[in-house]
């Protein structure tokens, strides 16, 4: 087990009359080298779960355990350090920095332009079939190409865990499947958590967890 969420509850509007439960007593475990899909309709709490497990958000109650650390007992800066060094993020929107080239966007996480890092970034870009675009700016790329750059950015630091929040939402089906195949390649080295409402992209995931109204409704182990 690499990351575990225990009794996770997230309530919005505490101390106000309109308390809303985004998550209710959710328990989840991710093991190393596992690819887990979280599926559910909009507002079901699946993105909130990703934010909490990645340390971007603090749950109202419950805790997240990562390796031998408890997110609730470490500082924001320490959580940020873990996110930077050990996690990779892919969001629905690419969030590329518009004034940086593709290669610089990929290297933003490490903020290094050492030869080894550049070489590594070029290898990832090659895998993603966008190596030839490395000097271009984001506005010169198509939506699919931008999302591939965002994926490269997530992979550059050899993350232990990859968090992907609707990574294919802005892509057509063909591009979505290509992107997923690249992400899946990293399954052996990383734990992958993919939040989506498109079940078709999770066909190669190990488990699919359905979230409904802030609770885990169903968990399917696809290889059993």
């Amino acid at each position: 087990m690499i990351i575990e969420g225990k009794e996770l509850t997230l309530v919005y509007g505490i101390d106000k009359d309109d308390e809303t439960y985004a998550l209710k007593n959710v328990n989840i475990k991710l093991t190393e080298g596992e690819m887990v899909g979280i599926i559910g309709p909009s507002g079901s709490g699946k993105s909130s779960l990703l934010y909490i497990l990645s340390g971007m958000k603090t749950p109202t109650t419950g805790n997240v355990f990562y390796k031998d650390m408890v997110f609730g007992s470490i500082s924001d800066n320490e959580r940020a350090k873990i996110r930077k060094q050990e996690f990779g993020f892919i969001f629905q929107r690419h969030f590329l920095i518009d004034y940086l080239s593709v290669i610089d966007n990929v290297l933003v996480t490490s903020n290094s332009k050492e030869d080894a890092m550049v070489s590594k970034a070029m290898t990832i870009l090659e895998k993603l079939n966008i190596k030839q675009l490395s000097r271009r700016r984001p506005y010169e790329l198509s939506g699919g190409q931008r999302q591939r750059v965002a994926i490269a950015r997530a992979l550059i630091n050899n993350p232990k865990v990859i968090f992907a929040d609707e990574p294919t939402a802005s892509l057509d089906h063909k591009n979505a499947m290509e992107v997923m195949s690249v992400i899946e390649e990293y399954k052996q080295n990383s734990t992958i958590l993919i939040v989506t409402h498109d079940r078709s992209i999770l066909q190669n995931s190990d488990r699919v967890i359905s979230v409904w109204d802030g609770c885990i409704k169903e968990e399917v182990n696809q290889y059993k």
Binding site: M56, D76, K84, F87, F95, I97
Partner: peptide, 15 residues
């Protein structure tokens, strides 16, 4: 803001 939001999300501290 998007740039700063992204940097914070991927692990750069506010400071």
């Amino acid at each position: 803001r998007n740039e700063f939001g992204l940097l914070n999300a991927i692990g750069y501290t506010r400071q």
